Simulated scan of single mutants.
Amino acid sequence: MSSSSEVRLLEMVFPHHTNHLGTLFGGQALAWMDKAAFIVASRHARRTVVTARSEEVSFRVPVRSGQLVELVAHVVGTGRSSMQVEVEMTAEDPLSGDRRVCTTGRFVMIALDSNGSPTAVPALPKPSAD
């Protein structure tokens, strides 16, 4: 994949990101995932983008205060003005190195022109035949 169709972010889970059980608020996880989707879609389109939809978000395992999360976002499809972005969030214990995929989701991002109207985005490059 080209560098403009993938992005990686790291976040540290601090106590203010968690609920009364000491696990990451779902809304915070969604915000970080949306941020990763926004960045990769902006880089792919080289345009202003907005979130049109989040879908198929699965919370698999809880993320605890003190863990790191790595978010990896990929543009996996394009329409005329839309981009489908898959985001995977992995939790890591910084002391043991144990890593687990904790949350996955798909976002639809729309590229906008200078008037705020949907505008065309580049297609994904075709995979090369090796």
Rank of each mutant, 00 (worst) to 15 (best):
S5M: 12
E6R: 11
V7W: 00
L9A: 13
L10K: 09
E11P: 06
E11A: 15
M12L: 15
V13S: 04
F14L: 15
F14N: 08
P15N: 02
H16N: 15
H16I: 12
H16C: 14
H17F: 00
H20R: 07
H20Q: 08
T23R: 05
L24M: 12
G26D: 10
G26H: 06
G27V: 04
A29R: 02
L30W: 03
A31K: 08
W32V: 10
M33K: 14
D34S: 10
K35T: 11
K35A: 10
A37Q: 05
F38E: 14
I39Q: 05
I39H: 02
I39E: 03
V40A: 13
A41C: 03
S42G: 15
S42R: 09
R43N: 13
R43C: 10
H44T: 12
A45D: 11
R47F: 00
T48V: 13
V50Q: 12
V50M: 14
A52C: 04
R53Q: 12
S54L: 14
S54P: 06
E55T: 13
E55G: 09
E55L: 07
E56V: 08
V57M: 06
S58G: 08
F59I: 12
F59E: 00
F59A: 03
R60M: 15
P62Q: 01
P62H: 01
R64F: 06
R64A: 10
R64H: 03
R64Q: 06
S65A: 15
S65C: 14
S65Q: 11
L68A: 14
V69P: 01
E70I: 15
E70K: 14
L71P: 07
V72C: 15
V75L: 06
T78I: 08
S81A: 13
S81I: 04
V85D: 10
E86I: 04
E86G: 06
E86F: 06
E86V: 07
E88G: 11
E88Y: 01
M89L: 15
M89W: 00
T90E: 07
T90I: 08
T90A: 08
A91R: 01
P94E: 10
L95M: 09
L95E: 06
L95S: 13
S96W: 00
D98K: 13
R99V: 13
R100L: 07
C102E: 03
C102I: 08
T103F: 05
T104N: 09
T104D: 02
G105S: 11
G105V: 12
F107I: 14
F107E: 09
F107Q: 11
V108C: 09
V108S: 11
V108Q: 11
V108K: 03
M109F: 04
I110F: 03
A111E: 02
A111W: 01
A111K: 02
